[in-house]
Simulated scan of single mutants.
Amino acid sequence: MSLGGATHGKHETVYDWAAALLAIVLTGIHLYLGFTADEPRFLVVGGLFAVGVLFFFTGYWRTVVYLVAAVYVATLGVLWFLSGMEYRGVGLLTGAISIAFIILVVYLFVRESSAG
């Protein structure tokens, strides 16, 4: 299976798979919170992550979407912080995963932008 992006099936690396895995983990965390805490907003956030992961594996993926993903995740972190840091333990874990995800997708953006 080839991954989406500017390199479509030519240069998949561990970084491509790691980005997808981190996005799946973020999906799971948000869906878990949505169902266990009865918080519909987390279901929406998790659903958007799931759509992003599915989109990543299509031929429609474009390099710029890496930046959209980074901004999306960073915005979620800022909103969590400004809203009083609900679910602090899970939020800190999610924050650590999110930072790794942001670094990774920015790297992938730079790599694929310079490759094309």
Rank of each mutant, 00 (worst) to 15 (best):
G59P: 09
V90E: 11
V44K: 00
A70V: 01
A50V: 10
L3I: 14
H11L: 10
T75F: 11
T7L: 14
L21G: 10
V45P: 01
A69W: 13
S98W: 03
A19W: 15
F81I: 05
A115Q: 10
L3K: 13
V51W: 08
W80L: 00
R111W: 08
R41D: 08
V53W: 05
L92W: 14
G89F: 14
E39K: 07
G84C: 10
L33Q: 15
I103W: 09
Y87W: 14
S98E: 03
S98D: 05
L79S: 03
Y66S: 05
I103R: 03
E12T: 14
R111A: 05
V45H: 00
F81G: 02
G95H: 13
V51S: 09
A74Y: 02
S113V: 01
I103C: 04
H8I: 09
T58E: 07
A50F: 14
S113N: 07
A50M: 12
V68C: 06
T75R: 08
F42Q: 07
R111Q: 10
H11E: 12
R62P: 00
F81M: 02
F57H: 14
M1S: 10
A70Q: 01
F35P: 01
I29E: 01
A6H: 14
G84N: 12
V25W: 03
V90D: 06
I24F: 13
K10G: 12
A69P: 02
V78W: 02
T94V: 09
L92F: 15
A96R: 01
V64L: 11
W80R: 02
V51C: 04
V45D: 03
H8R: 11
L26K: 10
D38M: 08
Y32P: 03
V90S: 08
G5H: 12
F49V: 04
S83C: 00
T7H: 12
T58H: 08
L79T: 07
Y15Q: 13
V78H: 02
Y32C: 00
E86W: 11
E86T: 12
E112H: 07
G34N: 09
F109N: 01
S2Y: 15
Y107W: 13
F109T: 04
I97E: 01
E39G: 01
Y72R: 00
L92M: 15
I29Q: 01
G47M: 08
V65F: 10
V53M: 05
W61L: 13
Y72V: 03
V71E: 00
M85L: 09
G46Q: 11
V64C: 05
Y87L: 04
H30W: 00
F55C: 02
T27M: 13
A20E: 11
G9D: 10
F109H: 08
S113L: 05
Y32M: 06
L43V: 11
V51A: 14
G95W: 14
F109E: 01
V105I: 06
D38A: 11
E12M: 12
L54Y: 13
F55Q: 02
A23E: 05
A115L: 12
Y32T: 12
R88C: 04
T75D: 06
V65H: 08
